[in-house]
Design a protein around this nucleic acid. Structure first.
Length: 436
RNA sequence: GGUGGGAUGGCGGAGUGGCUUAACGCGACGGUCUUGAAAACCGUUGUAUCGGCGACGAUACCGCAGGUUCGAAUCCUGCUCCCACCGCCA
């Protein structure tokens, strides 16, 4: 979330950001926020003055009592003051709640290097890599290849769970396992990431910390209270399935003050990911392009404020390295302000080529959130021993998501007989050079 | 799931309603002394918010959230986490 002080002292920067993001509807929220803040501060001054009186006089009452003197009149007067403090506290709590809820809804401010634009059509393609494969036969889509090879079972996935859940079988299952190990090994041994294996269920506070809630709560899977549970909002059972490892991994350091010498902290984590895709019914429903549960290796970085944009570039390079080793053609887009993720200040998307469908598929989104998540999750660091703590910058990028990578591998490396070659780099993990 | 015991500053640890805006110790930082270091001695010590141009001042924070009271680390209610034992369990 944004710093309230930034909004207070530089509201034009915030309004400008909303305009660049093409979200003019939020401008009135900024005005409301400024009014609430003004009255919150005025009330705070009054309340603190009364608290000061309370503290002073209460000490005096203590002294009188010790000296066995009469204090009834003073106590009667202080009862009034206490009542007034209670009323002001209620007002403050209410105003603070409204302020926080607005702050939680306001998006990050796009970095100056982010291009203007209203939609994905205005994203800037900054890189192309690799040559698209050519075939002397008609290449097939992955759902045909997968079914033909017996490695992908969409229908049974639907039977046991519902639409949007896939079953991988035999060499398909092995391919999943091989890819996960392959990617994690590269990130940990060559890119300097520490491997994390986090929970897949997290509490509400963690979801707020990384920014999935409140804005995207409808896209999240949430555990229903079990039979016999209290229905009245028991925090311990208010759990969400993670939509990405970003949530548990970033929140590892929530409420902490990190040592500057430890930065940057770089984590890589494999997790399953769960997404309701609430607003996307009917889109890309064939195959495993858009599913409710998928697997992903995610990279997360905690950096100082000075280095985050450099770290952003190397994070992108780390994601690209995976795809390059698998010999898959890809392109990188710099997201325009209008298409930029709610919580991001700058974001690259990496799309790989799927030869069977002849289209680009997003497999990685590489974002710098600057202090947006760190402020929500309260993750700070001390620049040096004497300095006051500052918010870290958090970044993350997929490295990479599996289903679309599998699609691309199947479709790009398919052969006329329906078998699929396995890229060289993956063979030690997969144990074979062809999927038959 | 059950029973009992805990949670206090960077760490250890005192503190059962007012003489505590948390004692004492350790650590850290600054200084004195010293050729240098150690020891000793002196001083300092967290986080956040608000007010002020500023020096500075005020408020809040003793696991979390409410409550009682003129006044709460201390009393009450709910919750979380940790430790021990019991039960269940891959």
């Amino acid at each position: 979330m944004l710093d309230l002080r930034t909004v207070r002292e530089n509201p034009e920067a915030v309004r400008n950001a909303l305009t660049r993001r093409h979200q003019p509807d939020l401008l009135t929220e900024v005005d409301r926020l400024l009014e609430l803040d003004q009255s919150w501060r005025e009330t705070t001054v009054r309340r603190d003055g009364l608290r000061n009186e309370q503290n002073t006089v209460s000490r005096e009452i203590g002294r009188l009592k010790r000296e066995k003197q009469e204090a009834t009149d003073v106590i009667a007067r202080m009862q009034q003051v206490a009542q007034e403090v209670r009323e002001l506290d209620d007002q403050l709590r209410d105003a603070r709640g409204q302020i926080d809820s607005i702050l939680l809804m306001l998006p990050n401010i796009p970095h100056e290097s982010v291009p203007d634009g209203a939609s994905e059509d205005d994203n800037v393609i900054v890189k192309h890599w690799g040559d698209r494969p050519e075939f002397d036969f008609e290449p097939r889509a992955h759902w045909d290849l997968g079914e033909g090879l017996g490695i992908l079972d969409i229908e049974r996935g639907g039977k046991i769970s519902g639409r949007g859940f896939a079953v991988y079988k035999g060499q398909g299952a092995r391919l999943q396992r091989a890819l996960i190990s392959f990617m994690l090994d590269i990130h940990t041994t060559e890119h300097g990431y520490t491997e994390i294996w986090p929970p897949a269920l997290v509490n509400r506070q963690s979801m707020i910390g990384t920014g999935q809630i409140p804005k995207f709560e409808d896209d999240m899977y949430r555990l229903a209270p079990g039979a016999g549970d209290d229905a009245d909002g028991d925090e311990t059972r208010d759990l969400f399935l993670i939509p990405t490892a970003e949530v548990p991994v970033t929140n590892l350091h929530a409420e902490e003050i990190l040592d500057a010498d430890d930065l940057p902290i770089c984590y890589a984590a494999y997790t399953p990911c769960f997404r309701r895709e609430a607003g996307a019914a009917g889109r890309d429903t064939r195959g495993i392009q858009r599913v409710h549960q998928f697997d992903k290796v995610e990279m997360v970085k905690f950096t100082s404020a000075e280095t985050s944009y450099d770290e952003h570039e190397s994070l992108l390079a780390n994601a690209e390295a995976i795809i390059q080793r698998l010999g898959i053609p890809y392109r990188v887009s710099l997201m325009c302000a209008g298409d930029l993720d709610f919580k991001g200040a700058k974001q690259y998307d990496v799309e790989i080529w799927a030869a069977g469908q002849e289209r680009w598929l997003e497999v990685s989104s590489v974002s710098n959130f600057i202090d947006f998540q760190a402020r929500r999750a309260n993750i700070r660091y001390r620049p040096d021993t004497e300095a006051r703590p500052e918010f870290v910058h958090t970044l993350n990028g997929s490295g990479v998501a599996l289903p679309r990578l599998v699609i691309s591998l199947l479709e790009n490396y398919q052969q006329a007989d329906g078998t699929v070659r396995v890229p060289e780099a993956l063979r030690p993990y997969f144990g074979s050079d062809v999927i038959t």
